[in-house]
Write a protein that binds this DNA or RNA. Structure first.
Length: 433
RNA sequence: UCCUCAGUAGCUCAAUUGGCAGAGCAUCCGGCUGUUAACCGGAGGGUUGCUGGUUCGAGUCCAGCCUGAGGAGCCA
């Protein structure tokens, strides 16, 4: 095994060369005097052809009994061949088993969701799951590049928090030293505002936790959210930024992960249409559209999943819905100066029924009004003294939003459920593996 | 928390009006020199989610429970 170590992802550039590939046996077929091993190594899949003449009696017999997911090192010569899946294959000359595998539970046939989720640590080895996780990687990388390239500073916010940021019923409590209770963050929002007052334009990017007893295709109890916040910024600035971010992510994935989208059989035509400008409609206009479509919708409420789908169906790209009633939004949203019952808020709805991917707006920057809101929401003032400081010491208009990574990945991959967009999903009834 | 649906071999499913527990895949054995979820032949593999009830007889009907899925509310 002295041939150059090669990753399968670069095999097309190694035609004619003697290579060594280290990976796992994905699948095996045999036709008597010839074995076909599909080997994967995390960078791709390659078919290895073994003939008795080339590898000898013993190795040939051994290869006939290798179980799915056996780890192995294969040496051979790369050849272009139209009969091989992907167009290239390795003429095997030697085979070394690193670790045996018997009765691998995930076979090439169908399995149920519960069965696969119980074996998520193995399921991620499948071609489809690998493709999804690669798209997720690309989305995250695109997000970081987008903000870093525009001068935003990454300033992460704490995961242990002392109290609620938005409400109290959806927080996970955790025992903290000396009989105290901490809560897992459900948004970096408040700290993000403080960071923006220090650094101008910032973003935080990390896991967030919501103890909502939601059981739908778009909910996880642990999910990743990126939250930019800008000092001296308005609602329109936030919408502009969200639009540019979504466009940047989609075009990056289309450019860098076309192969993965192919594995997922994702129709890319709807993604190609995701270009600025996005349509922008007010909550009032959205409510009118829903009524025109015959949906019973009462002004003042938030949109449900079916409402979001109905709205998104009217557009061929993401749509920004702005100025929701203040009653539907968090206490820190700034009221619309032209209509006190509305907030300077925005949701961006993804097309094709994927719903809300972005939520944000302009923040309340007036000290007295903020104090009033904290009281109106029955929040303990002491816990928010530091937050009130931001309005005591040089307050400025500021705005930002949060974007859920898993919903974006589910949309781009065309998935039925967000549970496949994260390596180990955490849901209402699932904490393992 | 509420509504709907499901649970049979390791996996995915079938089983007619309540009447002998079945198939494909996986596993093991054999065959095949270009397979593409290979194919062909053979073998092993069952507390029908749990508890109780109705019945000559229950996978099937009834009650309760458990587990899961889809949806609602809420949210990214």
């Amino acid at each position: 095994m002295d041939a150059t170590r090669t990753y399968i992802g670069e095999i097309a550039r190694r035609v004619g060369e003697r290579v060594t590939v280290r990976g796992w046996l994905h699948r095996r077929r045999s036709s008597g005097r010839i074995h076909f091993l599909t080997v994967r190594d995390g960078t791709g899949f390659i078919q290895v052809v073994l003939s008795k003449a080339a590898v000898g009696e013993d190795t040939f017999a051994q290869a006939d009994h290798l179980g799915q997911e056996t780890s192995l090192i294969v040496e051979g010569t790369v050849r272009e061949d139209a009969r091989a899946p992907g167009g290239y294959e390795i003429d095997g000359a030697g085979l070394e088993v690193v670790g045996a595998s018997h009765d691998y539970p995930i076979t090439p046939k169908e399995h149920g969701v519960d069965y696969l989720l119980d074996r998520r640590h193995l399921w991620i080895r499948s071609r489809r799951q690998q493709a999804i996780l690669r798209v997720r990687h690309e989305v995250i990388d695109a997000i970081r590049d987008f903000f870093n390239g525009r001068g935003f500073i990454l300033a992460d916010t704490p995961i242990f928090t002392p109290a609620a940021c938005e409400g109290t019923s959806t927080l996970f409590p955790v025992p903290y030293f000396d009989d105290r209770t901490a809560f897992l963050t459900q948004s970096g929002q408040l700290y993000n505002e403080a960071n923006a007052m220090a650094l101008g334009r910032v973003y935080c990017f990390g896991p967030t936790f919501r103890a909502e007893k939601s059981k739908t295709r778009r909910h996880l109890t642990e999910f990743w959210m990126v939250e930019p916040e800008m000092a001296y910024a308005t609602l329109d600035d936030a919408i502009d930024l969200a639009e540019a971010l979504v466009v940047a992510i989609v075009s990056r994935v289309l450019e860098a992960r076309r192969e993965e989208l192919g594995v997922l059989e994702r129709d890319t035509a709807p993604l190609e249409r995701v270009q600025a400008p996005f349509p922008r409609i007010s909550y009032d206009e959205a409510a009118e559209m829903l009524r025109e479509r015959g949906r019973p919708f009462e002004w003042g409420g938030d949109f449900g999943g079916p409402d979001e789908t109905a709205l998104a169906e009217s557009f061929d790209r993401p749509v920004a819905v702005h100025r929701f009633p203040s009653s539907t939004k968090a206490f820190y949203m700034k009221p619309d100066p032209e209509r006190a019952d509305l907030s300077l808020s925005v949701d961006v709805l993804a097309p094709e029924g994927y719903g809300e991917i972005v939520g944000g707006g302009q923040r309340l920057d007036d000290y007295d009004l903020l104090l009033e809101r904290i009281a109106a929401h029955d929040l303990p003032r002491e816990a928010f003294e530091w937050y009130l400081d931001l309005r005591r010491y040089g307050t400025v208009p500021h705005a930002g939003f949060g974007m859920g990574v898993e919903r974006v990945v589910a949309w781009l991959c065309g998935l039925e459920h967000v549970r496949e967009t994260i390596p180990y999903p955490r849901m209402l009834y699932r904490l393992t593996p």
